[in-house]
Amino acid sequence: MSAAREYRMAMTFNDNARIDTSKVRRRGRTTGIAVGGGGLLVVGLFLLSQLLGVDLTGLAGGGGQQQGPDQSIGECTGLDANADLDCRIAGAADSLDTYWSEELPTFGAEYRTTGIVLFEGSVDTACGGATSAVGPFYCPPDETIYIDTSFYDELQSRFGSSGGPLAQMYVVAHEWGHHIQNITGIMDGLNLQDTGPASDAVRLELQADCFAGAWVGAAPQLRDDQGVAFLEPVTQQQIADALSAASAVGDDRIQESTTGQVTPEAWTHGSSEQRQRWFVAGLEGGPNACSTFEAESL
């Protein structure tokens, strides 16, 4: 197969799509010792753990590097997004923002955008300090998504995802789904202390997977401010890549790879099968299909 043919198959964005990069920024680091958060940092991580259903309290550390100023990632076109990860994330963000700004009002809800901070190693947030060990996450107090882009390599090398552009953008769309849950009040009043395959924590995560699928289903019809479609039609291989990413971060898959056994009562995000199934539900049925909190069976 020629290099040009391989490139065309790998493409996701239309070359001449114009991408608004203002929602994505990189946070630099400077040398020196960071001011420790102490007990407040632990409390912040504990609250985030309860909200997102994953234990982050062990990530509170004393010291590290101070955060440098946020930096723009510069200008991007669709052609850039097909070659550069930062631009690809910006393209996904612009498309997601377009989708939810049009979709959410149809449900009688008011939309407001979120932003994405890309970082390396560790980051300070309104939820406390966190390291790349957390993986991508959404912080409700500052309504911001945080991604250490090295996670995408780990998604393949450690968790066995097939990779691919849509697998990377699935992660962004999932975290954007948490933003939708936050601003619409879905997160309010949930019992996130319980775990297990039918817990509120799992239902929250599966709904975010479903919201990600809903965006993928609509993405080829979304257009930039010049009327150019952001994305080319999504291929079955790209959908398979996204499903591979959803499967790779299933609780059962992670438990088996880290402890050698599966403990359903400790689940906080859902099994690989559940995560794939709800992604497909959104892909085929849109946000109306994402009623995980009403579903008797997940």
Rank of each mutant, 00 (worst) to 15 (best):
D209V: 04
I180P: 08
V172Y: 04
I183Y: 02
S150L: 02
P197E: 14
C210T: 09
I147M: 08
S161H: 04
T195Y: 04
E154S: 14
W176Q: 11
A167S: 14
L155G: 08
L190N: 06
L204F: 06
I186D: 11
I145G: 01
R158Q: 14
S199Q: 07
S157D: 15
N191M: 03
I186M: 09
G164P: 03
M187A: 12
P165S: 09
Q193I: 14
L204T: 15
A198M: 11
S162P: 01
D148F: 06
C210Y: 10
Q207Y: 07
H179L: 06
S161G: 11
I183W: 01
D188G: 05
L166A: 06
S162G: 12
M169D: 12
A201S: 15
D142N: 15
P165R: 08
E154K: 14
D142Y: 01
T149W: 00
D200T: 07
H174T: 02
G164R: 13
A208D: 03
L206W: 03
N191K: 02
D188M: 09
A167G: 06
G185P: 08
I147E: 06
S161M: 03
G185H: 08
I186K: 11
P197I: 13
H179F: 08
L155S: 14
P165M: 07
F151K: 06
E205C: 05
I145T: 02
G196Q: 11
M187T: 14
W176H: 14
Q168E: 15
G185T: 09
S150R: 07
W176A: 14
A198H: 09
V172A: 00
A208Y: 03
I180F: 04
D148M: 04
R158E: 15
L155C: 09
L204Y: 02
Q181H: 14
S161A: 15
T144R: 15
L206A: 08
G177F: 01
M169W: 00
I183Q: 04
G160C: 05
I145W: 01
A201I: 00
G160Q: 05
